[in-house]
Simulated assay, not measured.
Amino acid sequence: MEKDIKHGRIIIDTSIFTNPEVYQSFGLNPTEALRSFLEIISKLEGTSFYMPPSIYQELLNFIEAKDIPPDLQIRIIQKPPKRYELSVPAFLLYELIEDVRHRIDKGLRVAEEAVRKKIDKGLKISEAMEKRRKTSREKSVFLFPDVRMTEEIPYKTESESLEAAAIADLRKKYRAALREGIIDSKEDVDLILLAKELDGILVTADAGIVKWADKLGIRYLDPRMLRGILDKLLQEKN
């Protein structure tokens, strides 16, 4: 793989600088990681690094561009894929549609489960509160028979807390069901198409992009190995 990278075209994804498991090998935060990466590749020869413009614009949302010198920024070549000239096997369309349909069904089951849990918790809360109200009323009548008690025991805070937790859990599971392991943005597609067009090596921490790159026969590299490979190339150069 070092030999391929030494004379190859490397397609870089945003996730290299936004995923903590990956960028921490280059720096403490995305901006430091990108700067360190650019400083390393500026010393290499024979290897070119690319990003689709859509991915580069996405990356700017996570870094402080003013902290990256322009002479380093140009080390990553921005190139859009030839969207109107490239072709992909038809079977990928079939698989993508089947995958999306499966995920929609899975997302529906996640939502149904969340609703059932909410209903069950609501019923239990209602039963518990009614029991507490009844007990409170009985004690009040016994202690103050001439006073009519109208104040209700507050339970809104407890109910809202449970509701917030339920929504957070639903969002997490729904996102996992519908978005993990799939290409779900034009930026993802640009990355895959550019890697195919250039016959490059794709470096990404996105499992969905890796999955579809594999179907297209695109070479890819585990991003956690990137720093070690770059360091080795530097040692060989020196």
Rank of each mutant, 00 (worst) to 15 (best):
Q73C: 13
A164K: 15
V203S: 01
L60K: 15
P52I: 00
H7R: 15
L143Q: 14
I10W: 08
S87D: 08
A166H: 10
Y155C: 08
D99C: 02
A205L: 05
Q235N: 09
K118Y: 13
K131I: 02
F26R: 08
Y94F: 12
L143E: 09
I12W: 06
S25N: 12
E180C: 04
H7M: 06
V147H: 13
L59M: 08
A114E: 00
I183A: 11
L123M: 09
I192R: 08
F62Y: 13
L226F: 06
E95I: 00
E127M: 14
L193R: 05
E85G: 15
L162T: 05
K237V: 08
R132D: 03
A166Y: 03
E130Y: 14
E32M: 10
A205R: 06
L86C: 10
K3H: 11
A65F: 09
I5K: 02
D4P: 06
S15D: 01
L123C: 07
K117P: 02
P89L: 07
K121D: 04
I183V: 14
L72G: 08
T204N: 04
G27W: 07
T18Y: 01
I74T: 15
Q235P: 04
G200Y: 00
K215L: 04
Y56S: 10
D67G: 10
A164Q: 12
D13I: 03
I74C: 08
E151L: 07
L143N: 11
Q78A: 02
K196W: 09
R116K: 09
K106Q: 13
K3E: 04
A166F: 06
D4T: 06
G122R: 09
P52H: 03
L202A: 03
S185V: 01
S42D: 13
L60F: 13
I182F: 05
K134W: 07
D99H: 00
S161K: 15
E158A: 11
K117Y: 02
D222S: 01
A114I: 05
F26W: 05
L60V: 12
R132S: 07
M149F: 12
T47M: 08
L59N: 02
G228K: 14
S15T: 01
K172V: 09
P69K: 04
D71N: 13
I104G: 04
T18R: 00
L226K: 08
P53S: 05
I119W: 11
F142R: 14
H7I: 12
E158K: 15
R133L: 09
L216S: 01
